[in-house]
Design a protein around this nucleic acid. Structure first.
Lengths: 176, 176
DNA sequence: GAGCACGTACTCGGATAGGTGTTGTCCGAGTGATGCCGG
DNA sequence: CCGGCATCACTCGGACAACACCTATCCGAGTACGTGCTC
């Protein structure tokens, strides 16, 4: 287990392809999923979230698919994570201080108005973490991936998606 | 919802009391829970984890209870969080790169041996977050709480637990 | 030959199940303090 | 008066359910393309 689920991993990998091949035919969820060996329907679900967050735009129809809604250098990893995970905070303070038996259900204003120190510390930690993710754009992340991925693999990937886009077409009426 | 569950909040609040009143009679789970208005049985569950992590030691019997296993300045908030949450990483890389359809089940060594860049970024973010939590000890956290809590409340809390400890005793045989 | 209408297959999108983890609860084994009894 | 012992209530500890979220899936509505017909 982990704090962030697998949706973050799936989503980021998909967006990295979109980021690197913004000029190609917009791939469908099915294409992206089969290429990576993950569930196509689940990827579709993730892209619904990404679209609602305004990170990708969808094209409908037989040649439909997804492409980035903004330049890749303007989309941060944090935006992607928040879109997929719903922007959950690191820590949700339930203010149990107010439940203290000494107050008998009427906590003084000083308690209810001040910030819980535990909460404050968690907010600080969360801020640092989000700062790292916010500072990295899809563009930069893609470049760092490119450093370890040979050009031939990159080209092979592009070819695979292009071929996939070519085969996408309504069945020939005379074909059968 | 939040990344960290309520167990972190419960546990830290309990440990803050232990930290501030290390010289008092070790309170029982029931005492700590009722004082804060939370589930006694669940607090007991949390303390089992804290004990296994070596953060608290338990005393059995009718006057039993818990006390810190180490000086409060040697216990970091991170240790508490990890004990309660099982040390979950921020992100668990499933290495879906290896599933890529181009490799047909035989990913090259270059892929399996190198670190996923997404994973690397998440590790960096996690490191920052954990750094904040690791740098704060229970002692320091307690002091910052003390700045906003008036001395009279502190004393009232101490009195409540002391009174609670006094009433703890086997039933008098002649009492009924 | 050009324009138009139709049919098709593919796409997205939301509504629908299963698995896993967290939260919360219950009951049993163990233990130390208490009070009584005997010396 | 003092020490030993049985009793007792209280404690911890692990085993047991309920709930919620995440993951994964299925099916329906909508759309752009390709084809064939008509002019």
């Amino acid at each position: 287990m982990a704090l962030y689920g697998s949706s973050v991993e799936y989503g980021l990998h998909c967006l990295l392809y979109l980021s690197e091949n913004a000029d190609a035919v917009p791939p469908s969820c099915k294409d992206l999923a089969e290429y990576q060996g993950i569930s196509p329907t689940y990827v579709a679900k993730l892209f619904t979230k990404l679209e609602k967050a305004g990170l990708v735009v969808s094209a409908e129809g037989v040649r439909g698919g997804f492409r980035l809604a903004q330049p890749k250098r303007d989309i941060s990893v944090l935006q992607v994570v928040d879109a997929l995970e719903g922007g959950q905070p690191l820590f949700k303070c339930r203010e149990i201080r107010g439940n203290c038996i000494l107050y008998e259900g009427n906590p003084p204003d000083r308690v209810t108005s001040s910030v819980c120190r535990i909460h404050a510390l968690m907010l600080e930690a969360e801020l640092k973490m989000r700062g790292v993710l916010a500072a990295r754009s899809l563009d930069e992340l893609d470049k760092s991936v490119g450093e370890v991925m040979p050009a031939e693999t990159k080209q092979a990937t592009r070819d695979w998606f292009d071929a996939r886009a070519q085969t996408r077409a309504p069945a020939r009426r005379t074909g059968v």
